[in-house]
Design a protein around this nucleic acid. Structure first.
Length: 95
DNA sequence: TCCGTGACTGACG
DNA sequence: GCGTCAGCCACGG
């Protein structure tokens, strides 16, 4: 039993995000133990290749989907819409 | 051990 | 309302 790395925590948290729900990088970083490490969250997800981690459910604090490496072969927004997430006129996620 | 990188955030003009 | 600048953190080489 050892303290998992920040990366492991982020992946675990993202993996527990329910379908149709989204979290911001800041929220994930906060749950990971470093609320100001939102920058590292992006770095970790960017290098992540595990499809078991719905990294597409992590969006910016502005409500925009943000960037996506196309792990699922689709745009972040497209994947979120497929999960029931609604976008408004401004392309922002509706909570 | 030190430096560079990056899917971000908030503030300013 | 939009674009730009600087700051922050964790990881790999």
């Amino acid at each position: 039993m050892i303290a998992p790395s920040f990366k492991e925590r982020v992946l675990t948290i993202v993996r527990e995000i329910p379908k149709g729900r989204v979290l911001s990088y800041g929220e994930v970083a906060k749950c990971a133990g470093s609320p100001q490490a939102f920058r590292a969250v992006g770095t970790v997800l960017a290098k992540n290749e595990d499809v078991s981690v719905p990294c597409h459910r992590v969006i910016r604090s502005d409500g925009h989907a943000g960037t996506y490496n196309g792990l699922q072969g689709k745009s972040k927004e497209a994947v979120l819409r497929s999960e029931g997430v609604i976008f408004d006129k401004n392309n922002k996620v509706v909570v």
